[in-house]
Simulated assay, not measured.
Amino acid sequence: MKVDINELAGYFSTININLINMVRSVVPPGGKCFGVFTPPYSSFIFPLHGRARMFFDGIPYIMDPGKIFHSGPNMTLDKEVLGRFEWDFMVIHYRVDGDEKDGLSYGSSHYQLDPGQNTRINDMLHRLYHMCNTPGNLATLRAKSLFFSLLDEIFTCANHQRNDNNRDLIEQSIEYIKIHYMQPLTIPELAEQHGLNSKQFAYLFQKYMGIGPNEYLIDRRMRHAKELLCATTSSVAEISACVGYSDPYYFSKLFKKRTGFCPSALQRSF
C-alpha cells in the first residue's frame, strides 16, 4: 500500500489510541511460520538486526533495518527469516478506540515506511520499550507521549528520505537527457525508467528544476543546435537529426520560435 505521509500524520493526529504492549523477539536463522494471523489490534514492526520476509494478507515485505512496517488486526500472516543471521525485531501493539472515519483507515492497513537508519529513532524505540514494560500509570502516560514523539520522528524522516530519493531520481534523469538528447526521447519513456507515470514525473521535475521536462529537453537540444550551426558547415537537416528531430522543417520552426533566428540565416551569418 502506498502511503501519503501528510495524510498518515493527519490520521494519527485525530484518533484515540491505547497502547497494548511492546515486545521484542529474536528468531533464529531458518525460522518460519505460515498460516497464522496478526493479533486483533494494529502493530508497528521495527527490524533491528537480520532480515526476514513477511506476507500480510498475501502481500510480501522484506524486513530490513531502516524500514518500519505496519499491519492491521486479524490479517493472514506468513513469515520467514532470510540469510544466515537471526532476526531481531520489536513490535508495538496498539488499539484505535471509537469508530474510525470514513475512507481509508491506516490503522487497519498494512504498509511500509522508510525513514532510514536513524539513531534518534532507535534511541526513542528502546526508551519506549523500557517505559511500556514499567508498571504504573505515570509510566503509561509517558509511554503514550513517547509513542507520538516516535511517530513524529518517523514520519519526518520518511518524508525527508522520500524527498531525497525524488531529487536523486530527477538528477539521474537530467544526466540521461544530457547523454541521449539526440535520440527521440519522450516524457512517458523517461518516467517509465523510474516507475512513474508522466504526470508524476513532470510534477517532480518541475518541483526540483523549476522547469518542465519537455521544456528542459527542448532547451538542451536548441542550445546544442545553435553551437553546431555556429561552428560547423553541416546542413540544417543534418543538425536537426543530430539533436533528435527527424523533421528539419519542424526543427526550423521550433528553433526560430525559441531563439528568434532562422537556422539557415544564423548559419550564414557565421
Rank of each mutant, 00 (worst) to 15 (best):
M90K: 04
H93R: 08
R95D: 10
V96M: 02
V96A: 09
V96G: 08
D97H: 12
D97I: 14
D99Y: 12
D99E: 15
D99A: 14
E100S: 13
K101V: 15
G103Q: 02
G103M: 06
S105Y: 02
Y106W: 01
G107V: 06
G107K: 01
S109F: 04
H110R: 05
H110N: 09
Q112T: 07
Q112Y: 07
D114H: 08
D114V: 08
D114I: 09
Q117R: 11
N118E: 06
T119I: 07
N122E: 05
D123C: 02
M124Q: 02
L125A: 06
H126R: 07
R127D: 05
Y129L: 00
H130E: 05
M131H: 07
C132M: 07
N133Y: 04
T134L: 06
T134R: 06
P135H: 05
G136P: 01
N137E: 15
A139N: 03
L141G: 11
R142F: 13
R142C: 12
A143D: 02
K144C: 04
L146F: 04
L146E: 10
F147S: 00
F148S: 07
S149K: 13
L150D: 01
L150F: 03
I154L: 03
C157T: 10
N159L: 12
H160G: 13
H160M: 11
N163F: 14
D164L: 15
N165G: 14
N165K: 14
N166S: 10
R167Q: 10
D168F: 15
L169Q: 08
L169A: 09
L169F: 05
Q172V: 08
Q172K: 08
Q172D: 12
E175H: 14
I179R: 15
I179P: 08
H180V: 11
M182W: 14
M182G: 15
